[in-house]
Design a binder for these strands. Structure first.
Lengths: 339, 339
DNA sequence: GGTTCTGCTGAGAGCGCTCTCGGCCGTACC
DNA sequence: GGTACGGCCGAGAGCGCTCTCAGCAGAACC
């Protein structure tokens, strides 16, 4: 006891009461007189006692932790360091967890051995899990093992999800470029593996068809800036008359802006650029990016709240609105929108 | 048993062995014959058994989790969502934890009640804690409660830390601008509460003095882009002949670039800009930022490895090198450095 | 005074696992 | 044959806590 941390037993002995009473006091449940309460509090303070959360979790059967599961497909360094999306997810979850006495656990799952890792995580879920960047197959597997889960994008039909109208957002983005007088509106698409990317591609295709424009879409590949840079360069080479680009995510759009200006064209005068997400990359770009705002933080917060409220019904869906955010990359607004 | 998850007891019964044997098999420790091993594995597979990590942690006395503690001083939304630094810390930790069977727990601690929160976290540390953005007082408190801790910046003398030569980095940055022919080198400083910011300020001051230049430093405030934008605007107004800016962090530098170009000047021709950190903001800016690279991921990874190796000696320091990364914001390199 | 009721309190049985310890058996050696 | 030894295996004691349940006062009522 002198060396290791004091346990509830030590407190009980010091206060001259039973473990049960100490437990009642520190958990603030009724059934202990004011007198004993004071004695216990005194002993707690004196010993510097802090309850062992692990033991508490085991005994009560409920640990309070939300798990974030991110599947990483790229090499290794991946996900968190490189894409602002994940930070936003964590920030959204955190905002709900603060003060709720619930921990946040982060799991990165490599592609190899993903199934086993998923199983292990699912088996140890407590409050619930927020699934990020997960394939439908893995999502379904997780949900089969553990119902307390919700995905940040629509995946397998059974898996609860918060989602956003990617098709409509992309459509609105193209429409906005059209409204600004652009007629050669190209697109840089994201990876086919991402349903978000596919939906945004669909929205673009639908819009250009509806507006009677040429489909100038190219594959950009993964959601990283470099790909946006390369794709934009290729695009300008192939179609020098392009006057606008709709890019599948802000990070790629930031790369596209760099490529466009590096090639001697001006943004937005010669080529307007529209991103998607409204992430840090959008406001760090120069000029700042007009973009389709995806309320990632709000979505993650909502998902977390659902988990805290209990099991989420299978197949549950909550749709969030997207919103056009106009900054300078599509034409000078009256006042810079970011001040 | 039919409803709830199978326990080790169920597996033991199914395999016709004792709990101890099952434990030996699933933990892959010697002392079980190949025959029983097979039986147990079979039973595990059949029941879909997954060990309860909480019980395992309690029994063995060692849970395997690294805690990241971030103190948030700003309003609420704060830290993770807005500054790339934290993502990099998490990414660095993750890279070490992957496959080590160690969890990552994230704790955001508000300014109010920080002391209590710190105590609670310290009492439940297992592998150790990585302290981020913490004040010396809180860091010392944490370290007093729990030795298995390491800070991402040098704080109280007793608290182990990984650190970087901010003074030298700032000095080198200014020197580089000088070497490029700049003579009116301004600075946008970070918040006084940050020791990093103070050190970078010192490095700047020392450099301009040494080089015989005017000290054109202004306070930018917190490490956010908006502050960089505003400060750069103010700077250009006050000193229209400024031909370079050394900015305390990339995020602010990205804002500064926006303000400079919005004011009709060109980067780097009219004003060179040098950031600090080499974060996502540096490569998303346009033109991409020359910056002082702080190897945050490597530092976080090293800190994590130290914790995994055991208790870190009080007062431990590990210095990491900074490195000038030259991109276009200080003059066109031969080839774009980011391709 | 006897009964019932209520409110505190502590004993003790777990939660699901790890890990020590001792028993048992088979082999080796004298 | 007797002893020593080493490899397997299971019994059982925890890990630090929660929570039920029974006991025991003291108050209230007839």
């Amino acid at each position: 006891m002198s060396r290791s941390k004091p346990t509830i037993e030590d407190v009980a002995r010091a206060a001259g009461v039973s473990r049960a009473t100490v437990s009642r006091v520190i958990n603030n449940v009724p059934g202990a007189s004011g007198q004993l309460r004071a004695r216990v509090h005194e002993a707690v303070a004196e010993l510097g006692y802090m309850p062992n959360q692990t033991a508490r979790a085991l005994a009560s059967g409920r640990q309070r932790a939300v798990d974030v599961v991110a599947v990483t497909y790229s090499p290794a360094t991946g996900w968190l360091g490189t894409h602002p999306y994940y930070s936003r997810v964590l920030a959204g979850i955190m905002s709900v967890l603060e003060g709720a006495g619930v921990q946040l656990r982060v799991h990165a799952v490599g592609e190899a051995g993903a199934a086993e890792a998923i199983d292990a995580i699912a088996a140890n879920v407590t409050v619930g899990a927020v699934l990020t960047n997960i394939t439908p197959v893995l999502a379904a597997r997780f949900h089969r093992r553990c119902r307390r889960a919700i995905s940040m994008v629509a995946t397998a039909a059974s898996v609860p999800a918060v989602e956003v109208d990617n098709v409509g957002g992309a459509y609105a983005a193209v429409e906005q470029l059209y409204r600004l007088g652009r007629r050669r509106i190209a697109a840089i698409h994201g990876p086919d593996a991402s349903t978000c990317a596919l939906d945004r591609r669909t929205g673009y295709a639908r819009a250009v068809r509806q507006l009677g424009l040429a489909d100038l879409g190219v594959d950009g590949g993964d959601f990283v800036r470099e790909n946006g840079y390369v794709a934009a360069g290729r695009l300008l080479e192939r179609h020098p008359d392009v006057d606008a680009m709709f890019v599948a995510c802000d990070l790629m759009a930031a790369g596209a802006v760099q490529a466009i200006t590096a090639g001697g064209r001006r943004v937005p005068q010669d080529v307007s650029v529209m991103g998607f997400d409204d992430s840090l990359a959008a406001v760090c770009s120069n000029p700042p990016l007009s973009t389709v705002r995806v309320p990632v933080e709000e979505m993650a917060a909502a998902a977390t709240r659902l988990l805290l409220d209990g099991e989420v019904p299978a197949g549950y869906r909550q749709q969030f609105p997207v919103e056009l955010v106009l900054r300078e990359s599509t034409g000078q607004p009256a006042v810079p929108s970011f001040l």
